[in-house]
Simulated scan of single mutants.
Amino acid sequence: MPSLDRKPGDSGQRTAKAVEWIREEGIKMLISRRDNVQRLETHLLSLADLGRKLLVLGIAVWLCLNLDRAHAQEPQMMLRISEIEIHADHLDQYKALLKEEAEASVRLEPGVIAIFPLYQREDHTQIRILEMYADRQAYEAHLKTPHFQKYKTATLHMVKSLKLVDMQAIDAETMTRMFKKMKR
């Protein structure tokens, strides 16, 4: 700031310098404040953007946790294909026991949706069974039933090879419609 010591005859000049100095300092303060306001606005926008991102992330995490819980609580259907090769000399007896077991399982067990035995046209000893259970617990309960235990022990010596293949439905919605379309 210029010196404001009073000397005779130069009061107008000093006043003009003081006014000029005040104006310049005021402009500097305004510019400084404008820059500070702009920086503050930028920070606030960044914080708002960060807040939106955190909110979206929070919602995503919440959805994942709740969907996992929903899936964990919702029993998942168990699907399996049993690939079995039977010794040819036991084929007729095996088919009769399998037919009996499949019918009893579907009729007696609420958790057994389907046990559908099939054989290959070219090689009748190649058996495939489409197994559908309401959930894993229904499958485990099925293994303990008297009719399954009878089938398992009676056919053990007839089986040349067995492969159990767990499957996953590609289109479960269409699968439910398929069963509705079937006629008795």
Rank of each mutant, 00 (worst) to 15 (best):
N66A: 09
V159F: 01
L108T: 09
P8I: 15
E83I: 11
A172G: 06
E131Y: 00
Q126T: 11
D123L: 11
Q13P: 02
A114G: 02
T176V: 12
A60M: 09
A172K: 10
L55T: 12
T42W: 06
M175N: 13
V19T: 14
V159I: 12
I86M: 00
E24K: 14
Q168M: 15
M78Y: 12
E41K: 03
V61Q: 08
S32K: 06
D123K: 13
K152C: 02
E24W: 14
I84A: 05
C64F: 12
L118M: 04
Y151C: 01
W62C: 14
H142V: 04
R136C: 03
I115W: 14
R23H: 05
L143S: 05
L97C: 00
E24P: 10
R69F: 08
M132F: 10
L162Y: 03
A169H: 15
H142E: 01
K180S: 02
M29L: 15
N36L: 11
I86V: 10
I115Y: 04
R80G: 05
D35I: 11
E20T: 11
I127T: 11
H87L: 11
H157D: 13
Q13N: 12
G26F: 03
K183A: 00
K180W: 01
D92W: 01
L79M: 11
A88F: 08
A48F: 09
S11N: 06
H124L: 13
Y139I: 02
L57R: 08
K181S: 09
L156G: 02
Q73A: 14
I81D: 12
L156Q: 01
R121Q: 03
A18V: 09
F148S: 01
D35T: 13
V159K: 04
A96N: 07
H147F: 10
A88L: 04
H157P: 01
G12S: 14
M167N: 12
I115D: 05
I84N: 04
P117Y: 00
S82A: 02
R136Y: 09
S161C: 13
V37S: 06
F148T: 05
L54Q: 04
R39Y: 00
L98R: 05
L143Q: 13
L47Q: 14
M167A: 15
L55F: 15
A134E: 00
L50F: 10
D135F: 08
H157M: 01
A138S: 05
K28L: 09
I170K: 15
G9D: 10
T125C: 07
A104K: 00
V37W: 08
L65R: 12
K163N: 09
E100G: 04
Y151S: 01
Q137Y: 07
E25W: 09
M29D: 09
H147N: 02
V112Q: 11
Q38S: 06
A102K: 05
A154R: 07
A102E: 07
D135P: 12
L45S: 13
I59V: 14
R80A: 15
A18I: 01
A72T: 08
A48K: 08
Y94L: 07
A72F: 13
L54R: 11
K95T: 04
T155M: 01
A60S: 09
Q149A: 07
L57G: 03
